[in-house]
């Protein structure tokens, strides 16, 4: 066991999987040089230029080549440098990777992992801050993971690489170096599609993922100390397939659901979570299913004061908890 930050955990997962399975390769922009976040640091030296491959600045080719290679016995990890740059590859992800198995009636599979740092809070402006999980979470045939802790990142990335289907693996970049937490040195996996209760509580359920997990945990501590409100915090970890059972079990216990997400409010993934709770836990609800999210402006303005104004934070979440708890 050693203390690692999340970007180191991501790197370890790739290195260990490349060591374990010679079919695994990494390709993307600047990956041979270690990547802009250093997530591929050292992979070139460890595995050579045939397995850690710099590509041209061409996102559609990064994903499309990965798709083709995956049909021919290679297991590619494609890195998109920032989730904001993934849109040129959307056609390859949505029309091709996610649909290949279905449209060939199970004849072909597409075992690729697409990694992308996402999220705001680093003064990245509108093109280094986006949350793209709702767009891709809508797509059948694609799994979407959102990680924000070192332990989850390593275990879930290993599962993604071993998965027979395409996985979009979103790493919250604000969480990359936020903590140094214990991560086992040995091999372990965390199943895709399982949420985790990160904090037990009895009065209200906070359902969240990504960087908002950390803000929600802080807010939960605050309202516990100041208001005596006991908040449960669920980290979805996987957006698709979604772990409805864990969400519903918690809401059935607390009777109150606060869905917290960083993306814009309208059509964000939290809207789907809210709809599921409203439909399937209606009899247990003791207050309106409530969302805390960013306003509908392009995420996120560059200036610190603007970014802070837009993004949810522990204070905003704590305020929403108090309102809902008092309902």
């Amino acid at each position: 066991m050693a203390e690692k930050n999340m970007v180191e955990a991501v790197r370890d997962a790739m290195s260990e999987e490349m060591e374990r399975d010679p079919r695994v390769i990494v390709l993307g922009e600047d990956v041979a040089n270690g990547g802009v976040f250093r997530a591929t640091q050292g992979l070139l030296d460890e595995f050579g230029p045939d397995r850690c491959i710099d590509t041209p600045l061409a996102e559609s080719a990064i994903v499309g080549v990965a798709i083709g290679a995956s049909l021919n016995g290679v297991i590619p990890i494609a890195e998109i440098q920032f989730a904001d740059f993934i849109h040129p590859a959307m056609d390859q992800i949505v029309s091709e990777a996610a649909r290949l198995r279905y449209r060939s009636n199970g004849g072909w599979g597409c075992p690729i992992t697409i990694r992308a740092p996402y999220g705001a809070g680093i003064h990245g402006g509108p093109y280094h801050s986006q949350s793209v999980e709702a767009i891709y979470g809508h797509v059948p045939g694609l799994k979407v993971v959102c990680v924000a802790t070192p332990y989850d990142a390593k275990g879930l990335l290993k599962s993604a690489i071993r998965d027979p289907d395409p996985v979009l693996f979103l790493e919250h970049k604000r969480a990359y170096r936020l903590h140094r937490w214990d991560v086992p040195d040995e091999d372990y996996t965390i199943p895709i599609g399982e949420a985790e209760v990160k904090r037990d509580g009895k009065d209200i359920s906070l359902i969240t993922y990504g960087m908002m997990l950390h803000h929600a945990l802080k807010a939960a501590e605050t309202v516990e100390a100041e208001d005596g409100i006991s908040a449960e915090v669920i980290d979805l970890r996987t957006i698709s397939p979604l772990d409805k059972e864990t969400i519903l079990k918690s809401v059935e216990k607390t009777g109150k659901a606060l869905v917290v997400y960083e993306d814009n409010l309208t059509g964000g993934f939290g809207a789907e979570v809210a709809a599921i709770i409203a439909q399937e836990a209606f009899d247990f609800l003791d207050g309106p299913v409530t969302r805390v999210a960013s306003p509908d402006v392009p995420i996120a303005p560059y200036a610190g004061v603007l970014e802070e104004y837009v993004l949810p934070n522990p204070a905003k979440i704590a305020s929403a908890i108090r309102d809902l708890a008092a309902y």
């Binding site: 021919n72 056609d91 091709e96």
Partner: peptide, 24 residues
Amino acid sequence: VSGAAVVATQIVHAVGTAFASKLR
């Protein structure tokens, strides 16, 4: 290889299968 109706997406896939042939 199964194809879509979106034109040209398959050209990249052929480069991917060829890339794998070369790597292997």
